[in-house]
Design a protein around this nucleic acid. Structure first.
Lengths: 201, 201
DNA sequence: GTCTATAGACGGATAGAC
DNA sequence: GTCTATCCGTCTATAGAC
């Protein structure tokens, strides 16, 4: 955590930090595109312009690299917070909008990577389940006051998961190419209905 | 060495067909559980009690085995037909019920296998897209008469895909353990609403 | 049809020079 | 910190004996 504090000399932290950063960025891209199993350490190293041994030097194992690649960018947690701070009214729209806008930007949000890898990688599957339970289900049930809160939250998870898979993983049209506003206008009310609509017969 | 008299008659080819069948059943189970990339021909052979070379003898390549494992059982196409024959009214419930009942039985329905493999296997992804386009989107748009039929069908696909992933692939609770009737009662109306509800603002 | 043996390629990971 | 060299395991697929 050495700070770059020297005035007048905007130097680098260390020469190795650059390699580390390039590896990390390449890994994020490849893991997101091909999943954990479909990505090789060698491919990451080649595309990052470094030696494969460097990857292990910095991250120990392939799984260590994967974990490092999943780190959330600092702007995501406050965005999630903001979704639920507004209360139950309009939370459906805010959920859909935040999800789609963040994933369209396709920066470091680890959600696409997790969703792509979860079906065939147990560790990703566990992480995805934990993320959903902690960030979505728990917050939704806290907002709800009905005996079927868990099921309603589950229905919302189905919407968000289905939307993610259809738009970013399997790319089903016309969902994959729809503009953000259309998705918000279409799915926002559906999500809201899952939460505040009449209970099932 | 018994009757090998007739040249044109295969005689007792049954022993080979049995092996073939055992391989196929094992492959279906493993592909469904671990996807294409996560399943090895050796593992299939071992679990089926045959030699790995037998698998290649019967199916040529791993991809050939995969394709053979994806063959639909004969009772599935009529089930799909029945969903849409009833017209637009109640099609949401029939869609959800048919999907869940068939996949819970987890017989040879290839949908779980395709959905598990699609995120990391291009060929599975293409097959899944084709299946959805042919069996769901096309039939739904034929039933609808609105200018936004494609988007409405897309919304239904999101429901079905999300339900499949949540219940059978990633196993998100409480969706994964919910009784069939609860899912039908909850998601049937939502799917119906996607098709026949008021258009988005 | 079934098995043994193996080719040929690839991927994760380590040791050690510089 | 970076690279070379390599070990070791696993995988798909093939050749050929029986």
């Amino acid at each position: 955590m050495a700070e770059r504090s020297t005035a007048g000399r905007p130097g680098r932290w260390r020469s190795g930090a650059e390699s580390r950063q390039r590896i990390l960025e390449t890994a994020r891209a490849l893991f997101r595109q091909h999943g954990f199993g479909g990505t090789t350490v060698r491919a990451v190293a080649t595309e990052a312009g470094v030696d494969p041994a460097m990857v292990f030097y910095f991250f120990g194992t392939k799984q260590g690299l994967f974990s490092a690649a999943l780190e959330m960018p600092p702007h995501v947690p406050p965005a999630i917070e903001a979704v639920f701070e507004g209360g139950l009214a309009g939370v459906g729209e805010r959920l859909v909008r935040t999800l789609v806008e963040n994933m369209d930007r396709s920066d470091r949000s680890p959600l696409a990577t997790l969703t792509r890898s979860a079906p065939t990688h147990d560790q990703s599957q566990a992480l995805l389940r934990e993320f959903i339970a902690r960030e979505i289900t728990a917050r939704l049930t806290a907002l709800l006051d009905t005996p079927d809160a868990e099921v309603r939250a589950g229905m919302v998870n189905v919407q968000l998961l289905g939307l993610t898979v259809a738009r970013y993983i399997v790319r089903i049209e016309p969902i994959a190419s729809a503009p953000v506003e259309e998705l918000v206008a279409r799915f926002g009310p559906v999500v809201q209905h899952c939460l505040t609509g009449p209970p099932a017969a």
